Every structure is written in structure tokens, then in C-alpha cells.
Amino acid sequence: MIKELIVVEGKSDTVAVKRAVEADTIETGGSAVDRKVIAKIALAMERRGVIILTDPDHAGERIRKIVSSKVRGCKHAFIPEKDATRKGDIGVENASPEAIRHALEHVHTSFEGAPALIGLDDLMAAGMLVHPRAAERRMALGNALGIGYCNGKQLFKRLAMFGITREEFEAALAQIDQGGITT
């Protein structure tokens, strides 16, 4: 049984999570996260801890930002878009039990205000910014590090927020450049 409560978007996500692991969930009911849901998540954070597992799309990222800005100390789990897509539909409910377990085994804790260990110049040199294949490379990097896809500015913030070390960053880049991690 996973100790923390897992924040998901809806009932279908809860069903998928429960197929993969023994855990309790809190459903946001979509991207309009109201204050009652935030209060429930805050209480869960105090009592058991919280892991946010939202869809790897714009709405999921919006929910993740809302919840983590209102409830400090949340952990984050990410499923790569390719593992959460079925027949063109993206969502946790489409992920296999293995993909969900993998995401929950590689949870990241947010370190608010953490210093950046990877600079913008490092991202530029790695082809993550202002590069013809920057979006593709950021997706591969997000998959390799288990931090999800994001734009360049968000990638910079996320690397700092999750305390990604230079060694982790360089190892992920090496995997990408050797063709070991794809989008």
C-alpha cells in the first residue's frame, strides 16, 4: 500500500491507479480545482503526504501547478506521453499498470526555491533551447529523468525544483544522444 494519497484528475484515473497499485486517490474533477478539493489535498498532505499524478498534457500540467502552488511539499510522478496515449487520447487512464507503477516508483520531491544546478547555458549547449529539435530533445530528457515534458523555461525551473544533479542531467543526455531514450 502506498502511504501517500495520489491526486488524479478523475474516476477513470482512479480505476487505472487501483489496477496498478494499492493506494487511495483524490480526484480533482478536472482542471477547475475548487477550494474544497484543495482543502482535502492539504489535509491529506498533513496526514499522509501527497503524490500528484496528472495527465501528461496541458490540462494535467495546469492542475499540477495549481495544486502544488496551494499545497506545499507535494511529490510528483510523471507518465511519459507515449505511455499514456491510446487511440489519440492522452491520460493516466490509458497508461498500463506497469507505466503507472514505474511513475510511482520514480517520484520526485519538489524543493521550492532550490538553486539551479543546471544553467540556461547548459540547456542551450544540450540542444534543449533554440535548436531545430529542441522540443523533441526536451521530451526525451523529460522521459529519461522522469520529470515529464515541458517548454524550455519550465524545464529550467523543473530541473532546479526537483534537484536534478549535473550527473543525472549528463547521464540522461548521453542516453538520448546514443538513441537509448526516445520521445
Rank of each mutant, 00 (worst) to 15 (best):
K11D: 11
R47L: 06
G152I: 05
G73K: 10
A95C: 04
I63E: 03
K40H: 08
E4T: 06
E105R: 13
N94L: 02
L123C: 06
G152V: 02
R64T: 12
L5F: 13
F169K: 08
A44H: 14
R137M: 05
L43S: 11
A16K: 10
L155V: 02
I26H: 13
A20L: 08
L120C: 01
K11E: 11
T85C: 04
S96N: 09
L117G: 11
I90A: 02
V50H: 10
V7H: 10
A134P: 04
K82M: 07
E136Y: 15
L159Y: 02
D177G: 05
L159S: 05
A39I: 10
A42L: 05
G180K: 15
C74P: 03
L173M: 13
R19N: 09
R48G: 08
T109R: 15
Q154M: 14
I118N: 01
T109K: 13
A140T: 11
E93N: 07
N94M: 14
A160Q: 01
S110T: 02
E105T: 06
V17D: 05
L5N: 13
G142D: 13
K36H: 15
T54S: 12
E112H: 13
L129K: 12
A103E: 08
Q178H: 14
F78Q: 07
K18R: 15
G127L: 13
A134E: 00
T183H: 15
D13A: 02
T85A: 00
R19D: 13
A44L: 10
M1H: 13
F156S: 15
A114P: 01
I79M: 09
V17W: 08
L53A: 01
A95T: 03
G91N: 05
V130G: 07
S12V: 08
H76N: 00
E4G: 06
R101G: 11
L120D: 08
E46H: 12
D83K: 14
I176Y: 00
A160S: 09
V8Y: 03
M139C: 13
E112T: 09
D83Q: 14
R101I: 06
G179Y: 14
P115A: 14
G127Y: 08
I41R: 13
T109P: 04
A144H: 01
V50G: 01
H102T: 05
N151A: 11
P80G: 06
E46N: 10
V37H: 14
